[in-house]
């Protein structure tokens, strides 16, 4: 059984009087421990697909199952709790909270788990150690480079040991060297820590690092 299962997913938006169809009858399986890159032109629905899998958006019809849970049928409060437990999300523009330190940013998801302060402290240090920033615990986002910020965002995504890590254009705002570092980190998370990763990217080079590449064009998926 796949970790992520989309069945006959239909998604449309209403913009003024116009209905915009994003997907029709989209079906997708993502295996556990896989590293999948999702490519496609702007407006093809890549980010929408990621949002649907994360439960941030709801399909117009169809079912989305992640780790056995029917995401599309969950009430909002249960969905928030489920997301906290199962999903690690990384944004293109890092989206760290600027007034919190790297440590505090990474600690945020753990505040939703029944952990002691000491347990949280240990996990944050481990996560920041995995991304190579255990010497930047007390730095604020403004004191970090773009690559470092994105690594903190990845640490925040992995710190609660989620079932699935979703990344939306994680190298989109990074220079080549920082992008390489981030991609190498993702490969290591998949190969060594067996994390299931889905990455949305425009960058063919970034997609090459994945084990599986899917192309999304006009709402249709192709390998």
């Amino acid at each position: 059984m796949a970790l992520v299962e989309l069945r006959n997913v239909h998604k449309s938006f209403q913009r003024d009087t116009q209905v915009i169809e994003v997907f029709e009858n989209l079906t997708l399986d993502v295996a556990e421990r896989s590293f999948t890159a999702l490519m496609g032109p702007s407006g093809s629905g890549k980010s929408t697909l990621l949002n649907l899998i994360a439960g941030l958006d709801r399909p117009t019809s169809g079912t989305i199952t992640v780790a056995g849970a029917k995401v599309n049928a969950m009430p909002p409060t249960a969905l928030a709790a489920w997301r906290a437990r199962h999903i690690g999300f990384v944004f293109q523009s890092y989206n760290l909270l600027p007034v919190l330190t790297a440590f505090q940013n990474v600690e945020l998801p753990l505040l939703l788990a029944p952990l002691s302060r000491k347990q949280r402290d240990e996990r944050v240090r481990i996560a920041l150690g995995v991304v190579g920033l255990d010497d930047r615990l007390q730095h604020y986002p403004r004191q970090l480079s773009g690559g470092q910020e994105q690594r903190v965002a990845i640490a925040r995504a992995i710190v609660s040991d989620p079932t699935l890590i979703l990344l939306d254009e994680p190298t989109g705002q990074l220079d080549k060297r920082a992008a390489e570092e981030v991609l190498a980190l993702l490969q290591r998370l998949n190969s060594e820590l067996h994390k299931t990763i889905i990455i949305v990217t425009h960058d063919a080079h970034a997609a090459e690092k994945a084990k599986q590449v899917l192309h999304l064009e006009k709402g249709v998926l192709a390998a």
């Binding site: 994360a54 941030l56 909002p76 409060t77 928030a80 709790a81 489920w82 997301r83 906290a84 437990r85 999903i87 999300f89 944004f91 523009s93 989206n95 909270l97 600027p98 945020l108 998801p109 939703l112 925040r156």
Partner: peptide
């Protein structure tokens, strides 16, 4: 707004 969106994405309830 983006910070609030992040908090909601991380699983903080409304």
């Amino acid at each position: 707004t983006p910070e609030i969106a992040v908090l909601l994405t991380l699983g903080f309830p409304p």
